[in-house]
Every structure is written in C-alpha cells, then in structure tokens.
Design a protein around this nucleic acid. Structure first.
Lengths: 231, 231
DNA sequence: CGGGTTCGTCAAGGTTTCCTCAAGGTTGCC
DNA sequence: GGCAACCTTGAGGAAACCTTGACGAACCCG
C-alpha cells in the first residue's frame, strides 16, 4: 500500500528545519511545497491544493492559530501542527480550531513521517475514494479486486491478482523475483522463483501477450520484471 | 455535524487512570465502555461497536501493538494510543500499525479530550447515511429490516439479513469471512467460517441464484465475498 | 561460437478453498 | 413442555488453485 506521492505543504519560517523536513519527506516519495510565512502558506494551500499541511505556529506575520482558522474557512485539508509551543492550552485550542494532529518540537523526522502517514490514511478512508491503480489500458480496483483491460473484465486468480498489483504499484520499476516472493508469497525463503515465472506466464496469457512479444510485462534478464505502459 | 454522544472504548489496566479518564470523558457527554485487558478490549471493540478506542500499550496479557493489529483485522474504528512508552520507534511502529494518534503519559485529560474530538471530527465525514441501501434490484430498509428484490418482498432470517446488510454497506468491495464473523456474528476469532458459507448458501437460494451461477453474491476465491450489481 | 545461466512453458500432483447436506443444538414462542 | 424457526458444526466431494520439476529456448559473456 505505497502512497502514490502525496502533495504536502510545509509552512515553517526556520529555513534549516524547512530544509530538513522537506528533504526527509521528499525521500519518502512525497511532493513537497514550502512556505515561510502565513500569507504565503495560505496562498499555497489554495493554489497548490495539497493533500496535507504541516504547520508551524510561530510564524512571523500571522499567528499560526489564526492561519489555521483562515485555512479551515476555505478547505478541509488535513493539518498537522508541528511547533515548539507545547503547553496544554495551545494544544487543545489548536486541535479544536480544526487541526488533525499536534507535534511538539523538537521532533524526529521519523515520527513526523509516521504521523503524516496516519493522517493521510484516515483522510483517504473517509474520502471514500475506491483506490485504483492504472497502467495504460489496465485498471485495477483494489477493493473490488477487479481488473479490466481496455474496459474488458479479466478473471484472475488470487496470486495472479496480487502479483499484478505488486507490479502495478511500482510500475516502470524493475522488481526482482525474490522481492515478489517476499511481497506476494509472504515467505522470502519458502518458494522457488520458478513459481513466479509460472504465474507470470499465466498473467501474460490473460493479458493477451506473450513473453516473446511483451506489452505490459517486460522481463529484464538477470534482474527481474517491470510493468510498463505499452502505448 | 452533531455531537450526539460518541461511544468510546477505553482499554487501560490501571484502575486509577481508567476511572479518571472515564469520568472526564463522561462529563463531556461521551458514552464510555472500559476494558482492563487486551482480550476484554478486543471483545468489547466488536460487541460494543465503539466510535473510537483509546488504548494503553502496557497491558498485562497481550502487547498493545499486537492488539491493535488484531483489531485492525476486523475493524477500522479510530484508535488513539495513550501510553507511557514514548520512544520514537514505538510511536512510529504503532502509528504504522494503524493507530490514528499517539499520546504519551502523563497527559492531561483536556488534551486527550481535544485529540478525541479531532480524530472523531476527521472520522465522522462519512458516518451519516440514509436508512436504506440499494444494489441493483435489491432494496434494504435498515430500520424496518425489510428486503425486496425487484419489488418483491424477501423473508430473511436475522443472520441472513445482517449478513446481506454488511455486504451491502460495502457493496462492490470484497469482504473476508473473518470480517463478516466480526461484524455480523460479533466474535472476532471464535466462529467457524463454515457458518458464513452456510448462510451465504441460504441467502443465495432466497435471492434466486446459485454459487455456480452468481448474480449478486460473488465469491472471490481465497479472499472473500462481494455484493455487486448484476446488471 | 560455446558454455553457463536465466527464462518460459507444460503437465502432474498436491493443497487449499468452497459449497452443500444432514445432524444436532439453541432460542423463543405458544 | 413442546414446537418451530433458526443457528452451528463437521463431513464429503468438487472445483479452483498453487507448486514443482523437467526441458528447451533465450540470453550473456568471454
């Protein structure tokens, strides 16, 4: 369940912290937008439509709580407060102003990342969006475990589906068979790589392609497999 | 956006803290259910269907993280961790195991209350709903417990109705038998999955379909069942 | 070009999962 | 208590699925 790059807005006036946080978030595959003042942040929240906002309370121009109120007037985007102010009344009033989480400086980037994941996860559950992965004419509905190719339904076995999904979540990337054994088969030492081959073979047949004339499933000799958009 | 008394499950082995928290929560208009052990908590999470769970990690019988994992296997109820363990790796691993928030003891009841409000606010987006669910020619009147198919009334037993409703509330989604046992039978680990099969069989008969020629109830081998619009 | 390695496919056998039936057991009502 | 409706469980057979080994083809490298 890898996040397909969430867009995160970071509002923080300390350039050092901004760089540190932005780096670690970016390394986790997020798309980072930074702002160093409240006004700039509010503007970015509207124009960049982020999936989540990380907000420092101690901004130079406007108090962070006030910014949060303004933000809430125009958007219900999840907000995590990350600030030095740690007294109880601050926490309570800011949470009641509409923040989703509150983290006191100094915090570890690992913990911030985990809280970001938690808030995004919860927000995603409630947005009701049936998560779907698409590659070219392939569409994979994860919840329904339905796959269609160019609009036509495919009937896949459990392992075939899991395999295809694992590859689709990392589309364009070469994945080794050992990784697939670990992720799909759940036992890194148990299985033989031939098993992966066989399921790939079946998958190719159902996708209407063959190993000698691949479209979606390209094997990279000696390395692994990748799922690509054939168009 | 009403605040009509949320039901909160508190899992905490320290009787003093339990009383303190329960009191303050109750004073804020919440309906409190308490449990002092992990097993008791899991049982209550299923049988009481709370709107939110406050969970201590340092339980006597099972590690709280493990309880969280078991809970997440059968329910997506929001969970706030409130515990003495405050190291970074604990926070990260528990949040990634599915917790919504993490609070380190000692905490003020005011802050806990604010965090409860924040999490409930975020979770409450899709909690509303009409008392009728429809899928294709199927219409389910939740309040009256009436079901009609293409306008004709169906006579379902209690379990059959609950089962159909549980599937209809997540129509199109594959639901595992374990989840159904938790939601319909309210026994997370005790029941046999055969029981689900049998009720499904009866349900199919009353819906005028069979396992070999399914219309509404599609079984997804190795995963579970989904209710779909057959048209 | 030749050897060693990796890959693709097939068929067979074993395993898991599913569906239905029939036999009790439970619950609630008269 | 007795009856009827309902629920639960285990067994058995069928179906779907997975794994493995074998063998030839494809590939890479010197």
């Amino acid at each position: 369940m890898l996040d397909p790059m969430s867009r995160i807005l970071l509002v923080e006036d300390d350039a050092e912290i901004r760089r540190l946080v932005a780096d670690s978030m970016a390394r986790l595959g997020h798309d980072i937008v930074s702002a160093s003042s409240a006004m700039e942040g509010l503007q970015a929240a509207v124009s960049e439509s982020p999936d989540l906002v990380v907000l420092d309370l101690g901004l130079p121009d406007v108090d962070g709580t006030e910014l949060l109120r303004m933000l809430r007037a125009v958007s219900s985007v999840p907000v995590i407060i990350a600030t030095a102010r740690g007294d109880d009344s601050s926490v309570v009033s800011v949470l009641d102003a509409g923040a989703d989480d509150y983290l006191v400086k100094p915090y570890s980037t690992a913990q911030l990342a985990a809280r970001v994941r938690a808030v995004l996860r919860r927000a995603e559950v409630n947005s009701g969006g049936s998560d779907e992965v698409a590659v070219g004419g392939l569409r994979i509905d994860v919840a329904a475990r339905d796959v269609t190719i160019d609009g036509e339904a495919l009937d896949l076995s459990p392992k075939e589906f899991d395999l295809l999904l694992a590859l689709a979540e990392r589309q364009g990337e070469v994945v080794s068979k050992r990784e697939l054994l670990a992720q799909v088969w759940r036992e890194p030492w148990g299985g033989s790589e031939r098993t992966v081959d066989v399921h790939l073979s079946w998958l190719r047949r159902k996708l209407g392609e063959s190993a000698s004339d691949p479209r979606y499933l390209r094997t990279v000799h000696g390395v692994g497999i990748k799922l690509v958009d054939p168009s």
